[in-house]
């Protein structure tokens, strides 16, 4: 125990706080934020059968946070009978996106090729976004499974951004910026996003300027969305632990500052 430093105690505290909250599993009623409501309203009011491009622009590292966001949005979209075209601008998002779409589609008995397709990955996001603006079939001659684009019934109806209601970018970084700036500004593509909490403030100016139509952020955003669609998921399950962790961090900040001021006072007293 002699080798434990103060940081180890801080770590241990966090582990205990989160584990305890997860074992308790108390259901929480959340206040829906206006931004989550806006995303829900958009997907809900879109005419049935609308085609939405879903881009998995994230890495595996953020999967625990991204999965509940993506699942909630995909569930709502499939439930509303929208048609989804999946793709990825980051290599790691490729397999995750494919798997998520496949799993959620199965829940709603949606069929590959008719109700959704998965195009896979293209590198160099700016070039990929611009290239899709010119021609989606030319950018993705084949889907992720190796079927030619023209043989997929849903894909046959979509040749450029004009044929989709918008793009839903699921991201843990700044890739949505490129959808907004290259897809939106150049080809009038409507952009929506599900982003990790850390990226929320990065996109605020785009939401405010209307360049991004709607956005949900973080596990909390996912939980609010799950509440709206009335399907429980990782978001709602993690909310008590999330709340408790925030309070633990606040406590650490307070203790840290009290110690700092006490030390400062002591030093001033000695002088």
């Amino acid at each position: 125990m002699k080798r434990l430093h103060s940081r180890h105690w801080v770590f241990l505290g966090l582990l205990v706080v989160i584990t305890a909250a997860m074992l308790l599993r108390v259901p929480m009623q959340l206040r829906t934020s206006p931004e989550t409501q806006r995303m829900f309203d958009y997907l809900d009011q879109l005419p049935e059968g609308s085609v939405i491009l879903v881009s998995f622009d994230h890495e595996a590292s953020s999967l625990p946070e991204i999965r509940p966001i993506a699942e909630a949005l995909l569930r709502h979209a499939f439930e509303r009978d929208h048609k989804l075209i999946g793709m990825a601008l980051l290599a790691e998002g490729t397999v995750i996106g494919y798997r998520l779409m496949e799993q959620v589609a199965e829940e709603y008995a949606r069929e590959y090729g008719e109700d959704y397709v998965y195009l896979g990955f293209k590198p160099q996001f700016i070039a990929a976004i611009l290239s899709m603006g010119e021609s989606i079939p030319a950018t993705f001659p084949e889907d992720y499974l190796g079927s030619p684009y023209a043989t997929l019934p849903l894909a046959q109806k979509v040749s450029s951004y004009d044929d989709v209601a918008g793009v839903l970018s699921i991201t843990d970084g700044s890739l949505t910026t490129h959808w907004i700036e290259y897809g939106g500004a150049r080809y009038n593509l409507r952009v929506m996003a599900g982003v990790t909490a850390a990226m929320v403030t990065t996109y605020d100016p785009y939401v405010s300027s209307g360049q991004m139509h709607a956005m949900i952020g973080g596990l909390r955003g996912a939980a609010e969305y799950e509440q709206l669609i009335d399907v429980g998921g990782g978001g709602l399950r993690g909310m008590l632990a999330q709340s408790t962790a925030h309070l633990y961090i606040l406590l650490l900040v307070i203790i840290g500052n009290v110690l700092y001021w006490r030390e400062k006072k002591n030093k001033a007293g000695k002088r």
């Binding site: 103060s6 940081r7 801080v10 770590f11 505290g13 966090l14 890495e59 595996a60 590292s61 953020s62 999967l63 625990p64 790691e92 995750i96 962790a245 633990y248 961090i249 650490l252 900040v253 203790i255 840290g256 500052n257 700092y260």
Partner: peptide
């Protein structure tokens, strides 16, 4: 790959906690 990568990223939760305690001061 995915579990390990997500866990490496999850380590940051602990370092954020430590930073909040040791560096987040009203100087």
């Amino acid at each position: 790959q995915a579990p390990m990568q997500a866990t490496v990223f999850a380590l940051l939760a602990f370092f954020v906690a430590s930073a909040s305690f040791r560096g987040f001061r009203a100087r």
